[in-house]
Amino acid sequence: MTTPPHHEDHPHIVSRNARYGLILFAVYVVLYGGFIYLAVFATHQLSRPWFGGVNLAVGYGFGLIFAALILALIYMFLCRSRHHHS
């Protein structure tokens, strides 16, 4: 279920985990920044109907929450697959 601590603590693994973390973090920053940009500079865009009659504000908002979870799962998968390779 959990990997042995000494594998996870290897400096090589640590730095690769950190690099993947930062890349995924950057992806989320772009998504979050996009939302704030729309909210502040193009609020009318957010009122556009988007999916099933739901407007873009609600869609984007829910999307940010789902994106956080999906990126988190991708991160877990990347960290785990690296461990198997090592």
Binding site: L22, G61, L71
Partner: peptide, 12 residues
């Protein structure tokens, strides 16, 4: 949205 986004900083 903001409170949840904070967890991305925490995790990554």
């Amino acid at each position: 949205i903001g409170y949840l986004a904070g967890w991305i900083v925490a995790l990554f």
